[in-house]
């Protein structure tokens, strides 16, 4: 009897192998597990077995029943999956035909590189507690020059190639510094803010000169602000911008709205200060003008100079954009040309 049971399971094992259709699987199930199935026949004849074999037979046949049941369930889900997979195969799609390989157009989008860099810098300032302001592009002489300690006859107006309107009273702002004036007019110290935006210079265009470009102007006014604070702040700012520690140096620079005024150089990031073609072998790259805000500027902005002082700085955004992406011609920035802009796609 034991032998019969063993034969049965061996027979089952081999026959389930060859089943390929659900129907034959159900037949097989009936054949072995059905009421009149082969296993039941054996179980029914259990009583005829020798008593010493009975226990062993009982255990084994129960195990085999479970085995058969499991095998059939497994086979069933296997057959179902292959049936579904067959259908899926019919619905095959080319997963390599993605948007990214399609003709350009609807399939990509992105921010202008100036926006990318400007936002990043704005966010750095925001994280350092600076407000972000803006002002009009069309300014009057007061806000663009006079309030910045540049009177009509000041030689510094030479440095400003100003676009004038025909009334000769209005002009396109030549720097973002008028935002300082407007910021002082609108705020009570202590305060700190930056003003990013377009500026305009009447100059001949070439790969590195544009008549329309972008600056970001910053100002901090409070009690007891010092040159040492200015250097600290600039180092922190530039380390954030360049994402590594940078060495800076200040040297005298003349800008009428600051006194003392500085040119800030950073240690050349290309050669690390050893001297290369980028830094003209000096190890330093001129990056931004800054300084302690001139008392006349604070006064023009309605600030009490006995109590408060401050510092200001300006940063050329386009140069940072060009450095970041290796753009060789500044004129691309305002070209409205997607062949250029689409290189900075977000996806």
């Amino acid at each position: 009897m034991l032998q019969k049971l063993e034969d049965l399971i061996i027979e089952f094992r081999s026959s389930i192998e060859s089943v390929e259709k659900k129907a034959s699987l159900f037949d097989l199930k009936a054949e072995y597990l059905g009421k009149k199935g082969k296993l039941n026949v054996i179980l029914k004849s259990l009583k005829d077995a020798a008593p010493e074999d009975r226990k062993e037979l009982g255990i084994r046949s129960n195990n085999y029943k479970i085995e058969i049941q499991d095998a059939i369930d497994n086979k069933l889900s296997q057959l179902e999956i292959s049936e579904i997979n067959e259908k899926l195969e019919k619905n095959w799609q080319d997963i390599s035909h993605r948007d990214s390989v399609r003709d350009f157009g609807m399939n990509s989008a992105g921010y202008h590189p100036v926006t990318i860099v400007q936002r990043e810098i704005e966010d750095i300032f925001l994280s350092m507690g600076f407000d972000i302001l803006d002002g009009p592009h069309i300014e009057d002489e007061f806000h663009n020059f006079e309030a910045l300690n540049i009177p009509a006859t000041h030689p510094a107006r030479d440095m400003q190639d100003t676009f004038w309107f025909k009334d000769m009273e209005h002009l396109l702002r030549t720097h973002t510094s008028p935002i300082q004036v407007r910021g002082m007019e609108a705020n009570k110290p202590p305060f700190k803010f930056v003003g990013p935006g377009k500026v305009f210079r009447c100059e001949a265009l070439d790969a590195s000169h544009e008549a329309v470009f972008h600056q970001i102007e910053g100002m901090m006014v409070g009690e007891n602000i010092s040159v040492s604070n200015l250097i600290f702040f600039m180092k922190t700012l530039l380390s954030e911008i360049f994402k590594k520690d940078v060495n800076v140096r200040l040297r005298p620079g003349f800008f009428p709205f600051v006194e003392p005024g500085f040119e800030l150089d950073i240690e050349c990031l290309i050669c690390g200060g050893k001297g290369c073609s980028v830094c003209k072998q000096t190890g330093w790259v001129e990056l931004l003008p800054c300084g302690m805000t001139h008392p006349n500027v604070l006064k023009a902005g309605g600030i009490d100079t006995d109590k408060y002082n401050g510092f200001a700085f300006g940063l050329g955004l386009d140069r940072l954009v060009m450095m970041r992406y290796g753009i060789d011609d500044i004129r691309h920035l305002h070209s409205g040309n997607l062949a250029f802009t689409s290189q900075f796609k977000s996806y």
Partner: peptide, 21 residues
């Protein structure tokens, strides 16, 4: 100016956020 040691300004804390515009 190289002989001036950088030091953080001491400023009051104030909340800042992007302007509505």
């Amino acid at each position: 100016y190289d002989n001036i040691v950088p030091a953080s300004p001491l400023n009051a804390i104030s909340a800042v956020r992007l302007s509505n515009a």
